[in-house]
Design a protein around this nucleic acid. Sequence first.
DNA 1: AAGTTGACGACGA
DNA 2: CTCGTCGCCAACT
Length: 105
Amino acid sequence: MQISTYQTVYNLVKKIPKGKVTTYGLIAEKLRFVNKNINAHVVGWILHKNNNPLVPCHRVVDRNGRLAPNFAFDGAREQKRRLESEGIKFTDEMHVDLKNHLWII
DNA sequence: AAGTTGACGACGA
DNA sequence: CTCGTCGCCAACT
């Protein structure tokens, strides 16, 4: 069975270490380096469809470190709570401190 | 098969 | 800073 694009995305997101976050664009960039032509929009859309608890999608934010508006998880509030429980700090109500927590492979 | 969707990114205003 | 527009592409309907 061929690995679909979204399986590839999940596989990468699962590798995000605890206490770190990454961005949609960064994920797209890494996967493009493998072989998939993907963009940030597709990554976000794939995660939206995700229902797999093994994928720590709360560690994925947009390029500014901002959390997903209100459509993700149980709301941005819940996502923020999870990230804080992993030691991630926020510069704002909706923004992760990317400077200290951005995941770089 | 073709059109729509989408948790984004970059840029302009 | 926010908002609108365009671009990007796979999966969905």
